[in-house]
Amino acid sequence: MNETVVCVVGNVATAPVYRELAAGPSLRFRLAATARYWDREKSAWTDGHTNFFTVWANRQLAANAMASVEVGQPLVVQGRLKVRTDGREGQQQWASADIDATAIGHDLSRGTAVFRRAVKPEQPTAQPRPEPDWETPGPAATGDGTLAQQGSEPATVT
């Protein structure tokens, strides 16, 4: 497939919105990525243009991000870029850049984080079933050392 995979470093701009859907959990938030450059005339770092992305996370990534992400935190987001354009009658056309996230993490160049492995909910344990007896009974010995026939009487063929 020809997908555009991007890695964006930025700050969380809006509070994450978490929803439980039929397909599983979903999370959405906006990420602001501002270009910075060294201005030689001012001898200082200067902010450039800010790009805003709508980040979408699904399933376990959504649940983990909801527990970890807050407004203002620096993040690194990797995922598939989707650019949508839309326009309604009488209104100006607009474009939206969405990232379908495959990985989200805190930018450790700007702070520290503590990782906690997600605990999966325990499944109810079923009662153990008894082990089946797979051995077939062998012929039983009689008191005189001969083998006795087991089961019903032999069928007669007429």
Rank of each mutant, 00 (worst) to 15 (best):
N51V: 01
P124F: 04
R36L: 06
A126T: 15
F52N: 04
V8W: 04
A35Q: 13
A15F: 00
R59G: 00
G111N: 12
R84S: 15
Q150E: 14
T102L: 08
L61P: 02
A97T: 12
T34C: 13
A15C: 02
P137V: 11
G138R: 14
A63W: 01
A113S: 15
V77G: 03
T4H: 13
A57Q: 00
Q78N: 11
V8T: 01
P74G: 04
V12P: 11
A63T: 14
T85P: 00
A13G: 12
T102W: 07
P139F: 04
T156K: 12
P124E: 15
D98S: 09
A65P: 06
A44E: 10
E153M: 08
A23F: 01
R30V: 14
R117M: 12
I99T: 02
P16M: 08
E131P: 06
E153K: 08
L147P: 01
E70Y: 02
V83K: 01
G10Y: 07
P74N: 05
R19P: 05
V114L: 11
G143E: 13
A62E: 04
H49K: 13
D144L: 13
Q73I: 08
T14V: 12
F29N: 01
N58L: 06
A141N: 04
L81K: 02
D47L: 06
Q60V: 10
V157E: 14
L81F: 03
F29H: 03
W134N: 10
V76M: 07
R28P: 01
P137W: 05
F53Y: 13
R80C: 04
A62P: 05
D144S: 15
S96G: 07
T158H: 12
F53M: 05
F29I: 05
V119M: 11
G87F: 01
G79T: 06
R80S: 10
Q93N: 08
V9I: 13
W38S: 06
R88L: 02
T112V: 10
V69N: 00
R59Q: 12
A65Y: 02
G10R: 09
R28K: 11
R117T: 13
A32M: 10
P124T: 11
L108N: 13
D47G: 12
L27W: 03
R116D: 09
P154G: 03
V71E: 05
V17S: 13
S109D: 14
Q123V: 09
Y37W: 15
G72V: 06
G24T: 07
R117V: 13
W38N: 05
P16Q: 07
I99M: 00
A22S: 11
P132Y: 08
